[in-house]
Simulated scan of single mutants.
Amino acid sequence: MAISTSQEDDVVSEINITPLVDVMLVLLIVFIVTAPLLTNTVKVNLPKAAPTQATPQTKTVTISVKSDQQIYINQEPIVLEKFEAAIQELKKVDSHLALSLNADEVVPYGTVAKLLASIERVGVEKLSVITVPK
């Protein structure tokens, strides 16, 4: 049993950081939960591949190819014949154009190869092929 004296009732002048840590953890959880919802991409089943070194984040144009071979540029559908012209227009607007390619794993290689060839002919130097880690 502890008996306190009037000398031990002094005010504690130290900062209690427990509430600060609680708030920061709640904010971290909110960001972890909402971050995947902020990506507005077409839902495709990505192939698995070994992770590579991350590149610096810039504003990229997303090219998606669904399993039915429908092509999208930033969620806007486009036919393969008009794809190269659309990329040329984007390249005129932004000379440092960066592309992200999301192709479903069941899409034939020929379709993806045609897209890659068009991207190369336009002269895009920054291309990311999006996969999921193994």
Rank of each mutant, 00 (worst) to 15 (best):
residue 3 I to S: 11
residue 3 I to H: 11
residue 5 T to R: 05
residue 5 T to P: 01
residue 6 S to W: 10
residue 6 S to L: 12
residue 8 E to G: 07
residue 10 D to Y: 12
residue 10 D to R: 13
residue 10 D to T: 08
residue 11 V to A: 03
residue 14 E to M: 08
residue 16 N to T: 07
residue 16 N to L: 12
residue 16 N to Q: 04
residue 16 N to G: 07
residue 16 N to M: 13
residue 17 I to E: 01
residue 17 I to Y: 03
residue 18 T to N: 06
residue 20 L to H: 07
residue 21 V to R: 12
residue 21 V to I: 15
residue 24 M to E: 09
residue 25 L to I: 14
residue 28 L to R: 05
residue 29 I to V: 15
residue 30 V to D: 04
residue 31 F to R: 07
residue 33 V to M: 07
residue 33 V to E: 03
residue 35 A to T: 06
residue 36 P to R: 05
residue 37 L to W: 10
residue 37 L to K: 03
residue 39 T to R: 11
residue 42 V to E: 05
residue 43 K to D: 13
residue 44 V to F: 02
residue 44 V to Y: 04
residue 45 N to Y: 12
residue 48 K to P: 01
residue 48 K to L: 14
residue 51 P to Y: 11
residue 51 P to A: 05
residue 52 T to I: 11
residue 56 P to M: 09
residue 56 P to V: 14
residue 59 K to E: 13
residue 59 K to S: 12
residue 60 T to M: 02
residue 60 T to R: 04
residue 61 V to N: 02
residue 63 I to S: 00
residue 64 S to T: 14
residue 64 S to N: 05
residue 67 S to T: 04
residue 67 S to L: 12
residue 69 Q to H: 10
residue 69 Q to M: 06
residue 70 Q to I: 05
residue 71 I to N: 00
residue 71 I to A: 00
residue 76 E to T: 09
residue 79 V to E: 14
residue 80 L to Q: 04
residue 81 E to Q: 13
residue 82 K to A: 11
residue 84 E to Q: 12
residue 85 A to F: 12
residue 87 I to V: 15
residue 91 K to T: 05
residue 94 D to L: 07
residue 98 A to D: 03
residue 98 A to N: 02
residue 100 S to T: 12
residue 101 L to N: 00
residue 103 A to L: 02
residue 103 A to P: 00
residue 106 V to W: 07
residue 108 P to N: 15
residue 108 P to K: 12
residue 109 Y to W: 12
residue 110 G to C: 04
residue 111 T to A: 06
residue 111 T to S: 08
residue 112 V to Q: 08
residue 113 A to G: 08
residue 113 A to K: 10
residue 114 K to E: 09
residue 114 K to R: 06
residue 118 S to E: 04
residue 118 S to V: 04
residue 118 S to W: 03
residue 121 R to Y: 11
residue 126 K to C: 02
residue 126 K to G: 01
residue 127 L to P: 00
residue 129 V to T: 06
residue 131 T to F: 03
residue 131 T to Y: 13
